[in-house]
Amino acid sequence: MTPASTALATAAAGAAERGFLSPTGVEIAFVLVGLATLGAAVVTVTTRQLVHAALWLVVALGGIAVEYLLLTAEFIAWVQVLIYLGSVIVLLLFGLMLTKAPIGRSPDADSGNRWVALGVAAVAASALVWVVVDAFRTTWIDLDGPVQGSTQVTGEVLFRHWVLPFEALSVLLLAALIGAIVLSRKDTADTAAAPADATDQGER
């Protein structure tokens, strides 16, 4: 395999410069937090206790926030903590309790096609990891220098270059909020009162 050997040679050359076999402290921390995140994600999709799945999702999303911090994207990390850990998990727990999820083990948490799903996920994971490792074998992120994602940098970029998508996104959030309220009202099943509902909705 000549291309592989040349790639290995370039990788070795890059490793000689960067120290491939002596990882930096940031890399060690990234790998450790990544293992914790991945383990929490696996427990989330495999546990049979529904509420525990939501709580393990907290660990996984918090681990991703720590990874953002290690990648010097501070603002994204705190937005992740605020929105995901603060609101999305709470919404999911409310949803679990409003649908009367069993507190203990539920033996039918996985559907019948879980082995097919496992095969698909394994094939996708092996293909993606192989392609990604092969593509970025000799690529390093330079984390030194000015912070890439501080609040000042992100704010300036967001309100200087991305204002229009930002405003459009706020309209989208408003539409989603109104849609969620309309969908989850109690009297939606009462089809006889539909015109009254329409006028009532217009007043709100």
Binding site: V31, G34, L38, A41, L70, V129, V133, F136, R137, W140
Partner: peptide, 15 residues
């Protein structure tokens, strides 16, 4: 940091 670390972690989380 080696770019493969976050890329591999993202691929595994996606799967």
């Amino acid at each position: 940091m080696h770019l493969a670390y976050p890329a591999v972690l993202a691929a595994l989380l996606f799967c």
